[in-house]
């Protein structure tokens, strides 16, 4: 953890799709079945194979109910897979850990802690003294643009501010991987764009590995190096699309870029459900 804290990975080269050594995240044959109420089983995830290289930004794009969040929870170690294997830097995942930091759509801030207390939480758990933790937390709060709100409780903040606190809380303990579960799904369109830009800025600085779950095509194209498109029932990876857009990316330039438009149109077609056959 301290390694990531003290030595930000800023300035590392372009995302390495072919990468020697073990992938940062390896998913091999991951399946997840749920018991249904009538006693049958429901196949939520069907043999998912996906590798994510260090420093890569990969989105999982799919319609609601395709199991994309479940896949993220499995990588996080919150939910156990029914079959298959998940590795982080080659080591099998057995539970949650500070090497993988989650950011949830619901923010999941501790309501009994102030902004400062929330951001300092993971640092205190990592053994830092209160003073050091709060100093470091203060820096991160400033970095996400919330200086002056340290003593506020989450309930007094807007949705966008809450999510920035949640991102700061996760960044604070220096995870190698960010696991983002539709983080901007609960925000209004304007705030959403602002936070997407801010996330890219933060990411450009230290190039953490990001696994990003979303159902918004434009968001996935704007942010990602690669987009894994999932289909529903059972949840499968239909296709993995490399987004060959230069970085750093700027929204206004991208919107006029032919390649961006092409990706958006292609992906939109891909996630459209095929005409109902069986259901």
């Amino acid at each position: 953890m301290s390694e990531a804290l003290s030595a930000p990975l800023a300035g590392r080269g372009a995302p390495a799709v072919p990468h020697p050594g073990p992938p940062m995240i390896g998913m091999a044959g991951v399946t997840k079945t749920f018991k249904r109420r009538d006693g049958g089983t429901h196949l939520a995830l069907d043999t998912i194979d996906l590798d994510v290289a260090p420093g890569e930004f990969v989105s999982i794009l799919g319609p609601s109910g395709c199991g994309k969040s479940t896949l993220l929870y499995i990588v996080g170690g919150f939910v156990a897979p029914s079959g298959g294997k998940v590795t982080v830097s080659g080591d099998p995942v057995t539970g949650p850990g500070p090497d993988r930091g989650p950011v949830f759509q619901e923010f999941a801030l501790f309501p009994w802690k102030t902004v400062l207390g929330n951001v300092a939480y993971g640092l205190r758990e990592g053994g830092l003294s209160r003073r050091d933790a709060e100093a470091r937390a203060g820096e991160l709060i400033e970095r996400v643009g919330l200086k002056g709100y340290e003593r506020f409780y989450p309930q007094a903040l807007s949705g966008g501010m809450k999510q920035r606190v949640a991102i700061a809380r996760t960044l604070a303990y220096g995870p190698k991987i960010l696991l983002m579960d539709e983080p901007f799904g609960a925000l209004d369109a304007h705030t959403r764009i602002k936070l997407q830009n801010q996330l890219l800025e933060l990411w450009e600085r230290d190039r953490k590995t990001v696994l990003f779950v979303t159902h918004a095509v434009d968001e996935a194209v704007f942010l990602s190096d690669r987009v894994a498109v999932m289909s529903r029932q059972p949840g499968r990876i239909k296709e993995v699309v490399a987004i060959d857009l230069p970085r750093p990316r700027h929204r206004d330039e991208l919107l006029l870029d032919r390649r961006y438009q092409r990706h958006v149109i292609d992906l939109e077609r891909m996630i459209e459900d095929p005409p109902d056959l069986a259901s």
């Binding site: 929870y73 850990g97 500070p98 999941a108 939480y121 758990e125 809380r169």
Partner: peptide
């Protein structure tokens, strides 16, 4: 208690008992 509060704490390094 919201599941994701527990997950957030676990990911930040808090033990299950903690």
């Amino acid at each position: 208690v919201e599941q994701k509060l527990l997950w957030s704490a676990r990911a930040a390094g808090t033990s299950r008992a903690g």
